[in-house]
Computed example of a mutant assay.
Amino acid sequence: MLEETVLSWQDRALCAQTDPEAFFPEKGGSTREAKRVCASCEVRSECLEYALANDERFGIWGGLSERERRKLRRRAV
């Protein structure tokens, strides 16, 4: 039940209504479309927090790529 509450932001995520392939592009593929969707998403910060807390290694989360999240994590340490 607690996890259900914690992840309730996912129900409001714009990516849930979009092609998931855009958020997991092939290596070297464009992230532009996914980041455009993220830019107008009301739960972007919750999504990014989730990705950082769970060490998500693939995909666009909270508008950031895996490399951008790694850089953000390094700056926070």
Rank of each mutant, 00 (worst) to 15 (best):
L7S: 09
R12S: 10
E21L: 11
R69L: 04
Q10C: 10
A22G: 05
A13I: 01
T18Q: 12
L7Y: 13
E21I: 10
R69C: 04
T5I: 15
M1P: 13
F58M: 10
R57N: 07
Q10T: 15
R57E: 11
L7K: 11
M1E: 14
L64G: 06
L2R: 14
R67S: 09
E21M: 11
T18C: 08
E3K: 14
E68C: 05
G62H: 00
A51K: 01
W61I: 05
V6R: 15
A76T: 07
A34D: 06
Y50W: 08
V6P: 07
A16R: 04
L72H: 04
Q17T: 12
E56Q: 03
I60C: 00
L64C: 09
C15D: 00
P20F: 00
T5D: 14
T18N: 08
A39K: 11
F23G: 00
E56D: 02
K27I: 15
M1T: 13
D19H: 05
L7W: 10
A76Y: 04
A13Y: 01
L2F: 14
R36K: 15
K71W: 12
G29T: 05
N54G: 03
D55T: 04
T18R: 04
V77E: 14
P20S: 02
C47Q: 04
R32M: 12
C38Y: 05
F24M: 06
L52Q: 03
A34G: 08
P20I: 00
S8C: 08
N54P: 06
A34R: 05
E46N: 05
E56K: 03
Y50K: 02
C15K: 00
E33L: 15
G62T: 03
D55M: 02
F58E: 06
